[in-house]
Amino acid sequence: MTTDSETRPTESAADRPGAIDAVPVRHPGRWVAIAVIAVLAAMLLHLLLTNKAFEWRFVFEAMNQSQVISGFVKGTLLVTVLSMIVGVSGGVLLAVMRLSDNPILAGVAWVFTWFFRSIPRYILLFTMGTLGILFQEGVAFGVPFDWKIIEWLGFSGDWRLFTLDANQIFTGLVAGVIGLGLSEAAYMAEIARAGIMSVDKGQAEAAEALGMGSGKVMRRVVLPQAMRVIVPPTGNETIAMLKDTSLLVAVPVIGELFYQLQSIGSTYYKTFPIAVAAALYYLAVTSILMVGQYFLERHFGRGFGNKAPRAARPAGAGGA
């Protein structure tokens, strides 16, 4: 509304332009789009409801089988969670190594990333399942090269704390988690590195000037801010990992969602409903993950977003 603090002699207040009541721009294209999409949606719905090939009853029955559910919980969910824990913590560690002043650490991180990014996951998982052949006497923990040292010194026996059976490590879900986790760490390393580099250098300087050691600077100041950049692509990676658990069959792991569904499908000669069942499972979990990502992003975006209204006080009260 206008204020009539100043009225020109020739025009009354009523003649001055008031509130705008204009005709909005029309969007005929939108109506056309709505019509087209409505028709397509109706066709899709019709297809889903009437096409016999879906065999919805079979789909839901298959989804409800105990071996499918257990494959979903252990092979899909658990492996996703464990692999992402390995991947994220390994990735952050690799990123910090890569950005450190120590050329050895930086080099090791680079080689790791190079190696694990180069190998397709399916082949990596297949290899993981066969690694036991390298360690036929088991994987021992103790003094490195102990047998050589003992031989030089003329002693006998061994200097080993404990020995694990390699064929137990490099099999099943453990091999799967190691393979997927290491591969993920290589990708996460690049994501975390980008996140760390996105934080203004002045932040680390301010923290250093306060007397914080490099570890504290990283943990308290740099990483929390880097998370804002790291979380969205990590959500992507988690969703990708969820789906890559279907590659576990290469290890081979059979306690996994898609393998179990497939075996039901081949028993009953019903391939298509099985694909639908698998898609429904993955759709459901991905939706849940996306909700989780929303909350994570909100948490790490604090202080950056416009959650709270901006203070409308450009000039402060002066230095008291």
Binding site: D200, G202, Q203, E205, A206, A207, E208, A209, L210, G211, M212, G213, V221, P224, Q225, R228, F300, R302, G303, F304
Partner: peptide, 20 residues
């Protein structure tokens, strides 16, 4: 870091920690 503890510094671009 211990030597820096007793020296305060104020920067041109403030460098406050934005997440706190």
């Amino acid at each position: 870091a211990a030597q820096r503890r007793e020296i305060g510094m104020v920067f041109q671009r403030f460098n406050l920690f934005p997440h706190m």
